[in-house]
Every structure is written in structure tokens, then in C-alpha cells.
């Protein structure tokens, strides 16, 4: 089996030859080819070269266009701070929707319009060409809560849940339509899997998650499925209070960040959910040894059972010792589901 076949087998409930290996790498990949991260995030050719190098060098089963959360916001005209060698970041002090009334005038950017979204779409197309069907190509969009936070400012959004539920509904609806259009462009370009990153969803607690966030995550997952792609959901942070809801979204892969024990996710989501993760990227993967990384991966696998994909809880940190990452991969290659 090649990497693409291995991932597809896992997602279809068939036994892969060994566990799929799909850790998120961004800055680690950029460093691997000696690129500045600014170039990785803004030039799809740099990203594709780095992704192919890291996936082939470490024998990952996939490549991804994920770079930073600011693509959509940038194309909408939000203020983004760019740094030479770290991810672009949303400038919350000058949030696009600091004035809520501006929402009604926002228009969904054209994913082929030449901005940062178009750059990502080109990345998906180039990775599809360069991977020759041997790796699964993953597109990436922001989830409703994360993108809403990027546009409104995360502090303001958190209070909007209480102050203005109507605005939340309008904002999430706009985000849903924008992200589905973005996903479609990436699927059309060759992405077979769409990652949805909904970081801010881990901050809101189970009540707000269920009332406001979950319904839009569910619509997003369903609409991406309707495009013919599989879905990997990644929510940064502590999701222990919302695992049950996440398990009911119908995601093909739930990519679990490290604060939530895999066993809890398994118990909440049942035996059928493919779980990915979830070594602590700093304490386990970067600060550990090859032996401890291997053991940590084994423990995740033990807790997850057969429906398991090897990865870290979040992005592989840029100065992770390569031998540690290799040990993580080796665990996957030496074990079957």
C-alpha cells in the first residue's frame, strides 16, 4: 500500500498494512528545506516543496496545505501581521468586524481571485501533481468558531455568545458559506481530504459549543462530504468537555490535541471513530527521546484501539529532533491497526 491507499483504507474501515502516519508539520517542514516561514505561508511552491520533502523523508502518508489561520481573513481585508520566520497572525486590535455592522457588507472572496486563498488552492493542485497518487492531499479550511474569532476578535466573540446570539448566527452563516466555497476550490484542485481547524471551539465549554458551534461544524462537515472529500477535524486545546459532540459530527478523522486523553475520546465517540494523535508536541515529541516518543505513541494506540492514526496532538514543533519524529513514524510503520 502507498500512503494514499493506507489512509483511504483506514477511512473506509478496511485494514491498512500498517497504521497511517499523519502528523501536522508546517514550520518543521519549512525549516527542512531552509525556507523562511513567511515564504512557506505565502508561496505555494515553497510549501509544496517542503511538504513533499517532509512526507517523503519521514514517510508520512499525506501532504497538506495547512499554513496558518489567516488566509480567508486576509482575502476579506483583515489586518494580518506578517513575520519573517513565523506564522502570519491576526491583528485582533484592528479586527475586521470590530464594528459588527460591517458583517452585512462582507462578500465571500473568490478562492481563485489571486489572494492567499488562491495561493492555497494552487498548493493543493501542485501537491496533487507532485505526489503522483502516493500521498493523500489534504486541503485546509477554518472552522466556524475559529474563523469567526479571526474576523471579530476572539475576546469580543467570546462575549458575543451572550450579548448578541443573532450576530453569532449571521457571522457563522457567512463563515460556513465562505469555507465551503474554499473547500470546494481545494477539492477541485485535488484535495481528497479537508482539514477543518476550529481552535477557538475548545474555549467555549459544552453549553455554548452545543448551542452555537456544533450545528455549524455539523453543516460544514456535511457540506464538505457532499463535495466528495473526507474530513479531518482538529480543535486545538482542551476538548475534554466537548468530546461527545465532536463524536457526533460524522468526521472521518478526529485529530485530537494532547490535553484530551485518547481513552476519553474513544469512550465518548465509540469504536468506529478514527482518532488521530495525540502526543504532546512539546513535552513528548520535542523534549522526549526516540524511545519515549515510541512508547508515547504505543500508549495512544493502546487507548485508541484499531481505528487509530499516528500523529502529534498539534503541529510538530519546529525544533523537534528529527530522530524523535522518525521514532513516531516508526511506531506507525511497525504496527497494524
Amino acid at each position: 500500500m502507498n500512503g494514499r491507499e493506507r489512509v483511504i483504507a483506514m477511512l473506509q474501515g478496511q485494514p491498512p498494512d500498517h497504521l497511517p502516519v499523519m502528523p501536522i508539520t508546517m514550520m518543521f517542514a519549512s525549516d527542512l528545506i531552509g525556507a523562511r516561514y513567511l515564504d512557506y505561508a505565502t508561496d505555494f511552491r515553497v510549501l509544496a516543496e517542503a511538504q513533499m520533502r517532509v512526507a517523503e523523508g519521514f514517510q508520512f502518508d499525506y501532504v497538506s496545505v495547512i499554513s496558518d489561520p489567516g488566509c480567508e481573513a486576509a482575502d476579506l481585508g483583515a489586518s494580518i501581521k506578517f513575520f519573517p520566520d513565523q506564522p502570519p497572525a491576526i491583528d485582533e486590535e484592528n479586527a475586521l468586524l470590530a464594528d459588527k455592522s460591517k458583517l452585512s457588507a462582507l462578500e465571500i472572496p473568490d478562492p481563485a481571485g489571486g489572494g492567499r486563498m488562491a495561493n492555497r488552492v494552487k498548493g493543493a493542485r501542485l501537491l496533487k501533481e507532485q505526489s503522483h497518487g502516493e500521498k493523500i492531499v489534504e486541503g485546509w479550511i477554518e472552522g466556524p468558531c475559529a474563523e469567526a474569532a479571526d474576523l471579530r476578535g476572539i475576546n469580543a466573540l467570546m462575549m458575543d455568545f451572550f450579548d448578541d446570539p443573532e450576530f453569532i448566527a449571521g457571522l457563522f452563516t457567512f463563515v460556513l458559506e465562505m469555507e465551503v466555497a474554499f473547500a470546494k476550490a481545494q477539492v477541485d484542485a485535488g484535495a481528497e481530504l479537508i482539514g477543518i481547524g476550529d481552535a477557538a471551539a475548545s474555549l467555549v465549554g459544552p453549553k455554548i459549543y452545543q448551542e452555537f458551534v456544533w450545528p455549524f461544524e455539523k453543516k460544514m462537515v456535511d457540506r464538505v462530504h457532499a463535495l466528495g472529500a473526507s474530513v479531518r477535524l482538529h480543535i486545538c486545546g482542551n476538548t475534554r468537555q466537548i468530546l461527545d459532540g465532536i463524536g457526533r459530527l460524522g468526521c472521518d478523522i478526529v485529530d485530537l490535541d494532547w490535553p484530551a486523553p485518547v481513552a476519553e475520546a474513544r469512550a465518548a465517540m465509540g469504536p468506529g471513530q478514527a482518532l488521530l494523535g495525540n502526543l504532546d508536541p512539546v513535552r513528548d515529541l520535542r523534549n522526549g527521546t526516540p524511545e519515549s516518543v515510541y512508547a508515547a505513541a504505543a500508549e495512544c494506540h493502546r487507548q485508541a484501539g484499531p481505528r487509530f492514526i499516528v500523529g502529534a496532538g498539534c503541529e510538530v514543533v519546529r525544533d523537534t529532533p528529527p530522530a524523535n519524529l522518525a521514532a513516531l513514524v516508526r511506531y506507525g510503520m511497525e504496527h497494524q491497526a
Binding site: 467570546m158 462575549m159 451572550f162 474555549l203 467555549v204 465549554g205 455554548i208 468537555q241
Partner: peptide
């Protein structure tokens, strides 16, 4: 104790 999350804390602080 996971009874309050960020939104509740922020409106309380406000």
C-alpha cells in the same frame, strides 16, 4: 471546576 469557560469568565470580568 469546568463550570465556567472563557465566555463566562470574560463577561464576569467585564
Amino acid at each position: 471546576d469546568c463550570e465556567f469557560f472563557i465566555p463566562e469568565v470574560l463577561i464576569a470580568a467585564r
